[in-house]
């Protein structure tokens, strides 16, 4: 049942992208997302597509896994496309009743759709290839300069990683309690909205109790091991840059330069 949900979305396999330093992937994702807003013509999209497709291939994550993330935003996509299609002024192509589709409308709808899809696939490549633990490590390290101005970077990262590691635990717990109540004849699937909400009580009460119990146990276990926050704390596996990370930064820089420069060369304006 709930075990089939792939939350946190990490896909365990061995690829170059999996081995990259999480900081590279964080910056890379940000660069890719920003780059999508730097151009308005086909040349830019061709560069972005080439880059994205090579990343997908490099990640060795099945494409079907990436598309899964799109399902959640299908409605948003549809609305954006429709608004762009009908509300962009320009040379009319087809018109019926009060609606007109313009050449510019088709163009901007297509661009907008591509941009949204790329945004989602681009960011899911990061979560699919990076364990939550690595991701928070990378964030902590990248944001560590902020601790100079008294931002509790370590604490925020710790809370994030605890929250992330609790997601599967709580999902499993939910699954277990749900099954235990179903074994006692509980019904979570039928009835109207009000009845369904009422039927959730046998699930929610034990779940909250167990979440509090676990939080309490974890706090005690951390204190018993003298956890005092980030001061003077060292890492078992400190993040270190390798040659491949530098190469990745170089590729990123080239990509960024390409998306800025190429679409602006008059001969390549498509």
């Amino acid at each position: 049942m709930l075990r089939d949900i792939t939350l946190g979305q990490y896909y365990p396999t061995d690829s170059v992208l999996h081995r990259l330093d999480p900081r590279v992937k964080l910056l890379g994702t940000i660069v890719f997302l920003l780059s999508l807003f730097l151009f308005q013509n086909f040349t830019g999209y061709i560069i972005a597509t080439v880059f994205l497709v090579s990343m997908i291939l490099l990640s060795r994550v099945p494409f079907s896994f990436m598309v899964r993330g799109l399902k959640a935003v299908v409605i948003l996509l549809a609305i954006t496309v429709l608004i762009n299609l009908f509300a962009t002024p320009g040379i009319p192509l087809v018109s019926f009743w009060k609606f007109t589709i313009t050449k510019e409308g088709i163009r901007s709808a297509a661009f907008m759709m591509l941009r949204l899809i790329y945004l989602i696939i681009g960011s899911s490549i990061m979560t699919l290839t990076t364990t939550p633990k690595n991701l928070t490590d990378g964030m902590e390290k990248s944001l560590s300069p902020l601790s100079k101005i008294k931002v509790p970077v370590h604490e925020i990262a710790m809370m994030m990683s605890i929250a992330l590691s609790f997601i599967p635990i709580l999902l499993e717990e939910t699954d277990k309690i749900m099954k235990a109540q179903m074994a006692r004849g509980a019904d979570f699937e039928s009835g109207n909205l009000f009845k369904r909400i009422k039927n959730m009580v046998p699930l929610l009460v034990p779940l909250f109790i167990s979440a509090f119990r676990r939080a309490n146990d974890l706090a005690l276990a951390m204190e018993a091991r003298c956890y005092q926050g980030g001061n003077g704390r060292t890492k078992m596996k400190p993040l270190k840059y390798h040659l491949r990370d530098l190469a990745a930064y170089l590729i990123l820089a080239l990509y960024l330069a390409a998306t800025i420069v190429l679409p602006r060369i008059p001969a390549l304006k498509l």
């Binding site: 109540q181 006692r184 509980a186 019904d187 009580v201 046998p202 034990p206």
Partner: peptide, 28 residues
């Protein structure tokens, strides 16, 4: 076919013991 899970006490949820035990037969 009644199933008692591991640590079944984690499934208790009612206000009192008697009502909790009533949950199963009531669902039948």
């Amino acid at each position: 076919v009644g199933l008692v899970f591991q640590y079944p006490e984690h499934q208790l949820f009612e206000e009192d013991v008697f009502t909790d035990v009533c949950f199963g037969p009531k669902n039948l």
